[in-house]
Amino acid sequence: MKIKAIATLLCAAALPATADEAPRVDTTGWFENPSKLDQVEGEDIYNAICAACHMPNGKGAVGAGMYPALAGNENLLGADYPIYVIVNGLRGMPALGGQLDDEQVAAVVNYIRTGFGNEWSEDPATAETVAASR
């Protein structure tokens, strides 16, 4: 796409790379819907929404407060807890149940339980288990 190519070139010139430069993100299919997330696959959903806080590598971040790492996070041992948190929010984290449907919540829960080196694939979330938690 021409506009994007020009913009990329200009940005590369204007914003010099630093050691802390974030990895580029594939935004195919993003920004299609003003009120919902359109991504279907767990990894795509994670990259389009969760990564803002839990970071692209799932390691979370620390400032005045913190975002918990998902990598190695034993709260993900079962699917119920992440389903609940994503649908309802927790502390500073907004509820995302309105922007993600049951299939999407299940997909991203299964992604974070098996991504970032996590190996919790048993009893995966399903649209049915998500619906039951709403």
């Binding site: 506009i3 994007k4 913009a7 940005c11 590369a12 430069e21 935004t27 389009a48 929404i49 806080c53």
Partner: peptide, 25 residues
Amino acid sequence: WGAYSYQFNALPGEQRVEKALEYGA
């Protein structure tokens, strides 16, 4: 705000700028 901002926030700063350029153009 809203769903679009989640996606903007999940991008590196440089790509937020690129997207703003792409749409604003």
